[in-house]
Amino acid sequence: MGSPLSGLAWLDRRKGRPDSTANWLRRLATGDIELTHEAFHALEPWRAAAHLRELLMSCGILPAVDKQICSFERWLIGHLASLSDPDQMQVIRRFATWEVLPRLRTSSQKKPITPAARRHAADQVKQATAFLAWLADRDHTLGTCGQTGIDAWHAEHNEYTRNTMRAFLLWCSASKLTRPFRLPPVQIRRATPMPQPERLELIGRLLTAPDLPLRTRVAGVIVLLYAQPLSRVVRLALDDVVRSDEQLLLRLGEPPSPVPEPLAELLLRWIDSRDNMNTATNNASRWLFPGRRAGQPLHPDVLAALINDLGIPTTAGRTAAIRQHVLEMPAPVVAEALGYHRVTTAKLASEAGGAWSPIRRWRPLAVTTGLDPAGTGDS
């Protein structure tokens, strides 16, 4: 940090507290606490422990592990400890250890785990636990559960619970823990997009309202203009803002997308005045939206709350944006430029009734939103 003495004084004022950072550092130095991720799982309060762990990872003292995987592992220890039935605990431990965690670790090798993905993984474990309790209340076990039991359970639970439980049931079937059964197909529901005029009105409000927080304005326009989920917005880095002599570009996919005025001016102004840059955790952060934890961007739930406070529904706005893009451009082009999967944009184009033809002339991405990327005032 800029003034090490002030940091040492801060630690000294809190050294008498057993759960203080100063005390944990002292115990790490003496070996009372092992310098491992597993040891940090047991420290309370967990938020303070997570903050120290991320500082140690950013300094290279602890091996770098995805933050959300650390959070899930810590939660799993407490969840397993709350189970009183040893047989149920063994099944849940096996499911979490050999099915849920490997999927998270594999995903983290491709891109960082989102908080939503970590919550979904925890929900899968919680629903699996509830299912075992449901069987026990009816004097059944996994070994006696077959098609009749699966049908009865599905009839009693809602769509979200059924979809969340699917991974556990498939794992039980593959592991021969249950009798053979079949599952109904997954029902996928998409959010209803907001009307296009409302989306453009919200973009205009964010671009022209100087009384609104700059961070929220920039993030909100990225969502509404480029159809980006907040989990992806918070992981944008300064290196994703490409400056050229003629135009500012934002790398969301390939090639980078043009940034129209006045968003370009707002984006550059935000880069020069980013929050959370004055502490030891982020003094050299490259995140476009730095968080308060070492090496971490702003939490997407925090950003969602800030945007929602302005009356902007992020999911409906993002859905409207991607729908408009696939109506006005080839779905593969949209997928490449905005970081979507080609299958996703193809399905969205089909659902939206898009009939793009190569004969039709299509314009640059930013222009199709009603903004002029060149800043000439034309749209």
Score class of each variant (00 low, 15 high):
Phe40Asn: 01
Lys67Gly: 11
Ser285Thr: 15
Thr178Glu: 07
Gly253Phe: 13
Leu56His: 07
Pro297Ile: 07
Gln68Ser: 10
Asp151Arg: 12
Trp46Phe: 06
Glu156Tyr: 04
Pro63Lys: 04
Leu8Arg: 15
Leu83Asp: 03
Leu230Ile: 01
Gly339Asn: 05
Trp153Ile: 01
Thr164Arg: 08
Asp275Tyr: 01
His37Val: 00
Pro364Glu: 15
Thr161Asp: 12
His341Lys: 13
Leu214Glu: 06
Tyr226Thr: 02
Asp211Ser: 15
Asp123Cys: 11
Arg162Gly: 04
Asn23Ser: 15
Ser84Tyr: 01
Leu142Asp: 04
Asn163Ser: 15
His41Lys: 09
Arg53Tyr: 07
Ser20Gln: 11
Gly60Cys: 05
Arg47Leu: 09
Leu230Cys: 00
Val334Ile: 07
Val259Cys: 03
Gly60Ser: 04
Asp239Phe: 01
Pro63Ser: 05
Ala48Met: 06
Gly377Arg: 00
Val242Ala: 06
Ser379Thr: 14
Ala116Glu: 11
Pro229Leu: 03
Asp239Ala: 13
Leu298Trp: 02
Leu298Arg: 03
Pro255Tyr: 09
Leu348Ala: 11
Gly253Pro: 11
Ala136Arg: 14
Pro112Ser: 12
Lys176His: 14
Ile33Glu: 01
Ala39Phe: 10
Val259Met: 06
Lys176Asn: 09
Asn308Glu: 15
Met89Ser: 12
Asp66His: 10
Val186His: 08
Cys70Pro: 00
Thr144Val: 09
Trp171Gly: 06
Ala22Gln: 04
Glu246Tyr: 14
Ser273Tyr: 03
His51Ile: 02
Arg53Met: 12
Lys176Gly: 04
Gly78Val: 07
Leu183Pro: 12
His37Gln: 09
Asp309Asn: 13
Arg94Ala: 14
Val65Trp: 04
Ala116Lys: 13
Trp46Asn: 00
Pro258Tyr: 07
Pro364Val: 15
Ser357Tyr: 11
Gln68Pro: 05
Ala128Glu: 11
Arg189Cys: 03
Thr129Arg: 04
Ala349Tyr: 05
Gln88Phe: 13
Gly253Cys: 11
Pro210Asn: 07
Ala29Gly: 14
His154Trp: 15
Asn283Ser: 15
Phe131Glu: 04
Pro180Lys: 09
Ser3Met: 08
Glu336Asp: 15
Arg119Lys: 10
Leu214Trp: 02
Gly204Phe: 05
Arg182Gln: 12
Arg363Gly: 03
Val91Pro: 14
